[in-house]
């Protein structure tokens, strides 16, 4: 636990350098470059709006913006995990041949996807303006949500990346789980669509409270539900603690198994 946290502080220059490299690599050599970070969520949004708002008629005013406010944090979460899981196996040469703090790699995945998320936020604000939805001061609690989501995502990314070194199909299994997780989180539909008796169970999913809160502060312009958010915070910190413990257990064997 201490070693991992210590490493994070100690290696912040390295982490920032690698995050920058990651982002530049992503946008280099592609014609649209930086626009890709907009294009992917936009295309997804168009398809979902077509299916759920036009075909299925989900009764939600301004569905496109509603959806986008939940889709962006989800994409940060899912692409972070998807990318981070394979990152130690993929970074084999580094882990095997250089004395390299392996925990840096999954964190770089989470951080670079966070920056991607931040870069696509202006697009969400543009939609809010276009649809005439006012921003309220509650939007200022965004950093709190970012912090919670970062802790939660990092807490999952670290053990997954390390486990994938030992059990190589973790990556595939995660891919399937993420699809299920997506539908169990309130991205496409409002929480109000979940029958009331199911809700206590439903909110055991920390992403439910988290995505709901993003929507509260950005889309509805109201305060988040604090008890729910407190629960998310407890889960996030608990996950990170457990994740670091798992990672520390596996750390010493990574170099020989990669």
């Amino acid at each position: 636990m201490i070693t991992s946290l210590d490493a994070l502080v100690h290696h912040r220059t390295l982490i920032m350098t690698l995050v920058l490299r990651e982002l530049r690599a992503r946008y280099r050599g592609s014609f649209l470059g930086f626009l890709w970070s907009f294009l992917n969520p936009l295309l997804l949004m168009v398809v979902y709006v077509l299916v759920f708002s036009v075909y299925l008629r989900v009764p939600e005013a301004n569905y496109a913006v509603f959806l986008f406010a939940g889709l962006l944090p989800w994409l940060w979460f899912s692409s972070s995990l998807g990318h981070a899981t394979g990152v130690i196996v993929g970074g084999g040469a580094l882990v095997k041949r250089v004395l390299f703090p392996a925990e840096v790699l999954p964190l770089v995945s989470v951080l670079s996807n966070m920056i991607n998320f931040l870069l696509s936020l202006p697009l969400l604000f543009l939609f809010l303006v276009l649809f005439g939805i006012p921003l309220t001061p509650w939007a200022a609690s965004l950093p709190l949500l970012l912090t919670l989501q970062f802790l939660l995502t990092a807490g999952l990314a670290l053990p997954l990346a390390a486990l994938n070194v030992h059990l190589r199909d973790v990556e595939q299994i995660l891919g399937n789980l993420l699809v299920l997780w997506f539908f169990l989180s309130p991205v496409l539909y409002p929480v109000s669509a979940v029958p009331a008796p199911f809700r206590p169970l439903y909110f055991l999913n920390p992403l439910a409270g988290l995505i709901q809160s993003y929507r509260d502060i950005l889309f509805y312009g109201r305060p988040p539900e604090w008890p729910q958010l407190a629960f998310v915070a407890i889960v996030a910190i608990g996950t990170l603690w457990a994740g670091l413990k798992v990672f520390d257990r596996l750390r010493d064997t990574l170099a020989e198994e990669v």
Partner: peptide
């Protein structure tokens, strides 16, 4: 410092400078 695998951390798409 180790000279075990030279250039193990190089990223092919990046310039030598980077």
């Amino acid at each position: 410092s180790t000279l075990i695998e030279l250039g193990a951390g190089f990223h092919p798409e990046f310039t030598g400078r980077e």
